[in-house]
Nucleic acid binder design. Structure first.
Lengths: 123, 123
DNA sequence: CTAGTATATGAGTATATGCTCAGATTATAA
DNA sequence: TTATAATCTGAGCATATACTCATATACTAG
């Protein structure tokens, strides 16, 4: 047990890295676990073709679930699942009007992010 | 055959969407398949904790594969796989110095993107 | 040349993800 | 109330993905 643990530690410490200074510099300004988690979940949410189409459409104004389903060409259930994820990350919000839920972007950041990134990729 | 095809068309056209105008508006300014593909691959590349750590570290200066492996705490092979993906998307580039490959961000866009997004999430 | 170092790559595997389907909610209307 | 519409949600499945391991490649030193 003790030996096994020691072996693991030795294995981890067997560092053949060349630039200790750069590694420690990177460590000093590293993202916290929380920041890294939030950032990666955010970008992952944008990293799917269906969700991107949803966000790009909502940039032009609010839409309901069946609007989005008709626009993208996937089922309303699939849209609803994706909207839940975007809602949980507070990327979109909705308002209810009777039985219909209208979705929109939560703030202008995603909108400008998409615009800027598209420009950058076309560069 | 003909009937089957007709049935499919009818199925697609059985649109119970409420706002034809909004759907057609979204269609007019929709992303092309190429744009959507490029954008989603780009964001997907940023949407992983390990790759984010790599990019965040490279923002401070170039690093070699074993530096990054030591910093992140995953194998050099795993780092190399992720760097290949980031290379293919031209998010990072490398330069060779003997047997060592130094990686860096390809341009300033990703750097400012990460900074801005982190600020936005902390808002 | 050989030995060693740094990195790359293909195959395999466990987990994550995006969709479909069936059924549950929520609200309107008869 | 019941019927219908709009949406949500859990389970299941097929694919995608992030890693490990073994091996290959590229370079240096001797």
């Amino acid at each position: 047990m003790e030996d096994q643990q020691q072996a693991n530690i030795d294995d981890l410490c067997r560092c053949r890295c060349i630039h200790e200074d750069r590694v420690s510099l990177a460590r000093k300004s590293a993202l916290s676990d929380t920041e890294n988690s939030h950032l990666s979940h955010f970008f992952k949410a944008l990293g799917d073709p269906s969700r991107l189409q949803i966000l790009w459409a909502l940039e032009k104004g609010e839409m309901c679930v069946c609007d989005l389903a008709a626009f993208i060409g996937i089922s309303e259930s699939a849209v609803s699942h994706q909207l839940r994820l975007l809602r949980q990350l507070q990327i979109v919000v909705n308002r209810r009007d009777g039985a219909v839920l209208y979705y929109r972007l939560n703030n202008g950041y995603v909108s400008s992010l998409l615009q800027d990134t598209l420009k950058n990729l076309n560069r």
